[in-house]
Design a protein around this nucleic acid. Structure first.
Length: 299
DNA sequence: CACCAGGACTCGG
DNA sequence: CCGAGTCATGGT
């Protein structure tokens, strides 16, 4: 028994570019990409749901099918719709970004090369926090491998046709762990403490995505978010970019961003702070897209 | 061995 | 507010 639904796709949209991004880690277990389809497991209203997303170019839509034996209730459908729309940023019109990029010396080639890539978000606040905190000051590849061990340590699984699908852990589960368990994943002392602390805050309802979505400018949201131990300016901006979807979020000191701009400008040194402030102003509400495109331009 | 990788904290000034 | 020192994994 299969059940599912469809989601319309915006005009500037490249499934291939999205899949390429999603396949940057061959060992990724938060989802699985196979034959141009994405499968991902969820825990929705206490029920394990395995869904498969397929792109239909002619119909310009995505089909979302539930593979395991679960009826697609209105609630499940609504939550999957929210998640997937957020994941691939389906509700955003990129035309003004592309217009701006056309005459922008840095973005021009980047947008051309990655035409149709959407800002791949991290819809779940806990997952975004884990990813960004784990990723502090290490290479992306190392961060990806740590994230996978984290999921395998705390996540539940769905078995389907001889394959295992992992569900990203709940904060409640991680909140009950002891620090040694996290240290065993090769996280540093600091990161283990940050993650325990934040899991407990989420589990107790002291941190919610809705709260951070209330701010209408990113400065206020950043200021509020950096009150939390373990969240500095870089982490706050990354979460605002990829989870809260603040267009003007801009991790200005990010090493990858600085190196990317350096390469694009064929310069022998990283851009200055003044230069970065100029770019922030120039890119305005499209800063987050600019950053995401630059990050992925050299992969 | 040094240095870097999509940083954050504390503390002294 | 800012700079230096500290933390501490893994690849090159």
């Amino acid at each position: 028994m299969r059940s599912g639904f469809f989601l319309a796709v915006p005009s500037i949209f490249s499934w291939s570019k999205i899949l390429k991004y999603l396949m940057r880690d061959p060992h990724e277990i938060a989802y699985r990409v196979e034959k141009r389809r994405i499968r991902r497991g969820f825990l929705i209203d206490g029920v394990k749901v395995l869904c498969e997303i397929t792109y239909h170019p002619r119909l310009k839509n995505l089909s979302v099918a539930i593979l395991n034996n679960v009826v697609c209730s209105d609630s499940i459908r609504a939550q999957l719709t929210d998640f997937i729309s957020d994941w691939f940023d389906l509700d955003q019109d990129l035309s003004t970004f592309y217009e701006m990029a056309q005459t922008d010396p840095i973005l021009h080639s980047v947008v051309k090369k990655q035409a149709g890539l959407r800002l791949v978000g991290i819809p779940d606040l806990f997952e975004a926090l884990v990813w960004e905190i784990v990723g502090q000051e290490i290479t992306v590849n190392f961060a990806l491998s740590l994230k996978n061990s984290f999921i395998q340590k705390f996540g539940q699984t769905i078995q389907y046709q001889d394959k295992t699908y992992w569900i990203f852990p709940d904060p409640e589960t991680v909140a009950q762990a002891d620090k040694e368990t996290l240290l065993g994943l090769k996280l540093t002392n600091h990161k283990a403490e940050y993650l325990l602390d934040i899991s407990q805050k989420l589990a107790r309802g002291e941190m919610t995505k809705e709260h951070y979505c209330q701010f209408d400018n990113f400065e206020d949201a950043e200021k509020d978010m950096t009150k939390i131990r373990g969240i500095g300016p870089w982490t706050a901006n990354c979460i605002l970019m990829r989870c809260i979807k603040q267009g003007d979020a801009f991790p200005m000191n990010d090493v990858g961003l600085l190196n990317g701009i350096k390469t694009l400008e064929k310069s022998d040194q990283k851009p200055s702070k003044e230069k970065m402030l100029q770019l922030k102003k120039r890119w305005g509400n499209w800063c987050s897209y600019a950053v995401f495109y630059i990050w992925n331009n050299f992969y």
